[in-house]
Design a protein around this nucleic acid. Structure first.
Lengths: 221, 221
DNA sequence: AGTCAAATGCAACCATCGTCGCGTTACCAT
DNA sequence: ATGGTAACGCGACGATGGTTGCATTTGACT
């Protein structure tokens, strides 16, 4: 057997110029188009081949299949210039954040790609890794938002910035993709209200001295 | 075309006795087995046919494909006797609730079916409907939990019971299936702490007079 | 019991997906 | 500029999934 451990032959990495780059761009574009058109389950590599002008065999060789194609597109999606809102108050910032999610997923065209990425993560470890990296970066960018609030005295010092951002998004995504309930502004506003109250109470205070699990004794008076 | 709106011909409904019932039971069992073994993406109707002793054609005719098979299994999953914990305090109840989720998804065997259902909802409207019904029922059963807390004066009267239950689950599922971050007891406990603080502050109070969106004026002193 | 139609079994068929061997193109280094 | 080789294009093949027409079983009704 000529089997080699974890494919040392990764095509497209030795000669990253010219055609290879163009191929990559065309493919990423076709993947996004296919995603919004048919969703993840309906996305086929033959569709990508057709709409990118890149041959089917090449796609299988370089990306290994639909999984890899989507994971690669996801990596790209994370390289944007998104920045969190800055309205002057934590309540305003969080509300803007929540409504951003709301608006995105209210528009089918805008929701298609993110939904497809989340769906892909169920079937592909590569997509799951890419998704984790994507959100990690997103929440990292939200840190200034909370730091400003700390500066204004709106929330206790030591509040975990990314935890707050996560807490606002969680209820919305939960309804969207887990319980499959409809989403409206009232839900978003309730999420903001809840997070705000919890944050003020210090529920998102930075991790205690011992980072490993134990009895968090932060609620005792 | 002999097309008929939303299939008035639903086989297996006119003659629900004997063989039909046995077939249905065998199939549901095989679906569950296949789900925990290969996950949703790997579940094929031929696998179900093989492991249930029911012919492939019958499965396609009665369930329409993998989607229907999973949706049917999900309907069944909701018909259990689950009841929320009752520890004597809201904090204890919510903690038990959160750790129940934690334990379920920490065990790969136990997590397989729920994960598969959630994944299926991405690809199938029937599965999505079944999932929504499942969680609706789940959270409805949690109502007594919050009502007891109201009775004890732990949270304000008028607190939306299912909203509290949802709020505890949301951060956990969010990490599990959206951001794909690892889950541990600290996260679960933080979720409980946050929800508790928010609930005490009245963030989950029943909908105000105007249910449509507006400026939530609950935070002004 | 007897009859009819619903529900299932059966086997072959068609479509689509993923893979393989080989020839061609065009980066990159000399 | 020029050769070498990575990367790509091409066509065909095998495998798997889903569909269809017809025979058979079996549950319900008289």
């Amino acid at each position: 057997m000529t089997s080699d451990a974890e494919s040392p032959r990764t095509p497209g990495t030795v000669r990253p110029g010219g055609r290879t780059a163009r191929t990559r761009a065309a493919v990423r574009d076709a993947v996004l188009t296919g995603l919004v058109e048919h969703g993840y389950p309906g996305l086929t590599v033959e569709y990508v081949a057709e709409h990118s002008g890149v041959h089917k065999t090449t796609l299988y060789r370089r990306w290994g299949g639909v999984e890899g194609l989507v994971a690669d597109a996801l990596d790209l999606a994370g390289e944007d210039t998104w920045t969190p809102p800055d309205t002057g108050s934590l309540h305003g910032d969080l509300t803007a954040l929540a409504h951003e999610v709301l608006d995105t997923f209210a528009d089918p065209a805008a929701a298609a790609a993110p939904s497809a990425f989340i769906a892909a993560a169920f079937q592909s470890d590569r997509a799951a890794d890419a998704l984790r990296a994507f959100y990690d970066e997103r929440f990292r960018r939200c840190a200034p938002l909370v730091e400003r609030a700390v500066g204004r005295g709106e929330v206790p010092a030591g509040t975990d910035a990314s935890a707050v951002a996560r807490a606002v998004s969680a209820p919305l995504f939960f309804r969207l993709f887990i319980t499959r309930e409809p989403l409206d502004a009232a839900v978003a506003d309730q999420a903001v209200t809840a997070v705000l109250a919890a944050a003020r109470a210090g529920a998102y205070a930075a991790s205690p001295p011992e980072p490993t699990a134990g009895e968090p004794a932060g609620t005792a008076p």
